[in-house]
Amino acid sequence: MPLKALVVDDSKVMRMMVMSGLRKTGLAEFEFVEAEDGVQALEKLKEPGVGIAFVDWNMPNMTGLDFVKEVRKQPEFKTLPLVMVTSEKTMGKMEQALNEAGADAYICKPFTPEEMQQKLDKIIARATAATSGGGFLGRLFT
């Protein structure tokens, strides 16, 4: 099964920038699945093979924060790594996403591939510790 990363942003250009940034982080070959808002992203999550999601905050129809909350309600996605990629940079928003909603990491726009790599390294380390070998994520990154 191909390895997939879900990229959720209402801006096509930003989705391209996120995907371009991710390709520079040493990710192994994998597929991107794109969604324009939280509602569409919930549908795309049902595709087999999605192992991580990068989610914008401010989107129409359903915000990234509400998407994260919805995902965490579903038992099969309790441990799916969720990364907020957003221009919201206040401490309050960050805490809301990480502590209240259950996101795993928080990346502020504009971001560099190096920042993205640092966050991913932490997620991988956590996943490795939890599943001895990183499970799905261990296969995503080389």
């Binding site: 801006s11 096509k12 250009v13 920038m17 401010n58 957003t86 221009s87 940079k89 726009k109 504009p110």
Partner: peptide
């Protein structure tokens, strides 16, 4: 069409900093 998208994102990034 992507020009509008890009400018929207650029403005969004500045606005995020403005909120802070």
């Amino acid at each position: 069409p992507e020009m509008g998208d890009a400018v929207g994102e650029l403005v969004n990034v500045v606005a995020g900093e403005l909120v802070a």
